[in-house]
Simulated assay, not measured.
Amino acid sequence: MKKTLSVQKNEEIEVVFEDLTHDGAGVAKVDGYPLFVKNGLPGEKARIKVIKANKNYGIGRLLELYERSPYRVDIPKEDAPKYGGCQLAHIRYDGQLMYKENQVRQALARIGKIEGARIHPMIGMDNPWHYRNKAQVPVGEKNGKLVAGFFKPRTHEILDADESVIQLPAVNEAVRAVKEICRELGIPAYDEEHHSGVLRHIMVRYGRKTGELMVVLITRTVELPHRKKLVDAIVSRLKQVKSIVHNINPKRTNVILGEKTKVLWGNEVIYDKIGDIKFAISAPSFYQVNPVQTKVLYEKALEYA
């Protein structure tokens, strides 16, 4: 006999959120049946609409808050594009740290079967804004205009944005300048649906201590239209640039970088320092995106060692 679900699609119900998922959605339960709702916070009472009811879990949409969490932070609607990729931006920073600490505790218990482990408090930043030294910005076209910014949640629609509140100012400036130059030169944006066009992503890497900047242009095609004019304009507008790289990714894929990379101007790598250690950073190389907390992490590891 088929079991009847506790809730039905399109039903509106009142819930109290108990927890958060790994990607920051609120978790509520109705007769043990879990409902995941974006923007819900533990302790909040709310009215939601069930938009999906699977066998083991449901998805809801927040309609109205009856009781707010003290950790909730309101984001003005007009500022939403600046927070692209910030799933926890609606949670006060000390609440984010508490949530992450709880995530570690739950992972140890659920996956590692380790109960009662001592979890040290999260070490937060003095200023948790404008710290990322790397941006990978998808490029597309809207109303005949090249756009670059963030993917709208759960879609491949690109929201055009000139700034991210978690990227270093120099990175925001570089992304904005390269986007403007590509528009001026009429470089065709990539069309994901038809697998046509040219420019797929703009990547920027920045050495926080050295001030060195790398621009990576990721295209579907081997040829980069207006290559010389593009390079000259980037060098002219971005005085800190030390490397301009062309990466070619002809595949239908969500993977950003392709296998072939060539230097268009300047050096193959830029440099940065964490403490006394100097790092050479190429377009595809791994390097921590938060250099401030990386130093804290390394120092803590050395302390324990």
Results as ranks from 00 to 15, higher is better:
residue 1 M to E: 00
residue 5 L to C: 09
residue 5 L to K: 03
residue 11 E to W: 00
residue 14 E to C: 14
residue 16 V to H: 01
residue 18 E to Q: 15
residue 19 D to G: 05
residue 20 L to Q: 08
residue 22 H to T: 05
residue 23 D to E: 12
residue 23 D to I: 13
residue 26 G to Q: 08
residue 28 A to Y: 12
residue 29 K to T: 13
residue 29 K to I: 15
residue 36 F to K: 11
residue 36 F to Q: 13
residue 36 F to G: 09
residue 40 G to D: 00
residue 47 R to H: 06
residue 49 K to Q: 15
residue 52 K to D: 12
residue 56 N to S: 13
residue 59 I to N: 15
residue 62 L to P: 03
residue 65 L to Q: 01
residue 66 Y to P: 00
residue 66 Y to S: 04
residue 68 R to C: 04
residue 68 R to P: 04
residue 70 P to A: 12
residue 71 Y to N: 05
residue 72 R to V: 06
residue 73 V to P: 03
residue 76 P to Y: 07
residue 77 K to H: 09
residue 77 K to V: 13
residue 80 A to Q: 15
residue 80 A to K: 14
residue 88 L to A: 07
residue 89 A to T: 02
residue 92 R to P: 06
residue 93 Y to L: 05
residue 93 Y to E: 02
residue 94 D to Q: 03
residue 94 D to W: 05
residue 95 G to H: 05
residue 100 K to N: 01
residue 101 E to F: 14
residue 101 E to W: 15
residue 104 V to I: 15
residue 104 V to C: 01
residue 104 V to A: 05
residue 106 Q to D: 03
residue 106 Q to H: 07
residue 107 A to C: 13
residue 107 A to Q: 07
residue 111 I to H: 05
residue 111 I to S: 04
residue 112 G to V: 10
residue 115 E to K: 11
residue 118 R to M: 05
residue 119 I to C: 02
residue 121 P to H: 10
residue 121 P to V: 09
residue 121 P to I: 03
residue 124 G to M: 03
residue 124 G to C: 07
residue 130 H to P: 00
residue 131 Y to K: 06
residue 135 A to R: 10
residue 137 V to F: 02
residue 138 P to R: 12
residue 141 E to I: 01
residue 141 E to C: 03
residue 143 N to I: 13
residue 148 A to D: 09
residue 149 G to I: 11
residue 151 F to E: 06
residue 153 P to A: 06
residue 156 H to P: 11
residue 159 L to A: 06
residue 161 A to Y: 01
residue 161 A to R: 00
residue 162 D to T: 01
residue 164 S to K: 07
residue 164 S to C: 14
residue 165 V to N: 04
residue 174 A to E: 06
residue 175 V to D: 01
residue 183 R to T: 02
residue 185 L to D: 01
residue 186 G to H: 00
residue 192 E to L: 15
residue 193 E to A: 15
residue 196 S to F: 04
residue 198 V to P: 05
residue 201 H to R: 05
residue 201 H to E: 09
residue 205 R to W: 00
residue 212 E to M: 09
residue 212 E to F: 08
residue 213 L to S: 05
residue 214 M to I: 04
residue 214 M to Y: 04
residue 219 T to S: 13
residue 219 T to E: 09
residue 220 R to G: 10
residue 220 R to H: 03
residue 220 R to I: 10
residue 226 H to Y: 05
residue 226 H to K: 12
residue 227 R to G: 07
residue 232 D to A: 04
residue 233 A to G: 00
residue 236 S to Q: 15
residue 239 K to I: 10
residue 244 I to E: 04
residue 244 I to C: 11
residue 246 H to T: 11
residue 246 H to A: 14
residue 247 N to S: 07
residue 249 N to H: 08
residue 254 N to H: 08
residue 254 N to D: 14
residue 255 V to I: 13
residue 256 I to P: 08
residue 259 E to M: 08
residue 260 K to G: 10
residue 261 T to W: 00
residue 262 K to H: 12
residue 264 L to F: 00
residue 265 W to G: 03
residue 267 N to M: 11
residue 269 V to P: 00
residue 270 I to L: 14
residue 270 I to G: 15
residue 271 Y to P: 01
residue 271 Y to C: 05
residue 273 K to M: 02
residue 273 K to A: 03
residue 278 K to W: 04
residue 279 F to Q: 08
residue 283 A to P: 15
residue 285 S to Q: 08
residue 292 V to W: 13
residue 293 Q to H: 10
residue 295 K to W: 06
residue 297 L to F: 13
residue 300 K to W: 08
residue 301 A to L: 14
residue 303 E to D: 08
